[in-house]
């Protein structure tokens, strides 16, 4: 599923035009990303949490180059699925 399909389904269910549906989707994404930029965790009920976590510096070995590296501390976007979403996709198998 891609953005276009989401917009189409959204317009059908809300009885609005696809342009409006697209605007609503973009607004939603924009609002979420702006909060992520401010290091907020975005919680969606029965779906999950999107947020930013800080990964501390660590040492790693690169087997192909046979060298020891230090990976500096950095920030990472994470998604934690809610229990209901986990239950929903539990029995999913790739077709």
């Amino acid at each position: 599923m891609v953005t276009k399909e989401i917009v189409k389904l959204l317009s059908e269910r809300l009885n609005i035009s696809q342009r409006q549906a697209k605007d609503l989707l973009e607004l939603q994404v924009k609002a979420i990303t702006s909060h992520l930029q401010r290091r907020h965790n975005i919680i969606t009920r029965d779906f999950g949490t999107v947020g930013i976590k800080e990964v501390p510096a660590r040492r790693a070995y690169i087997p192909s180059e046979k060298i020891l590296c230090e990976i500096p501390a950095h920030q990472k976007i994470f998604f934690r699925a809610a229990n209901k979403l986990k239950e929903l996709v539990k029995s999913w198998r790739p077709s």
Partner: peptide, 18 residues
Amino acid sequence: EIFVIIKEGLVRDGVVRI
């Protein structure tokens, strides 16, 4: 509705791209 559609898309296709 957006998140409901994402859930349905995940179950149907296994991937949702936004």
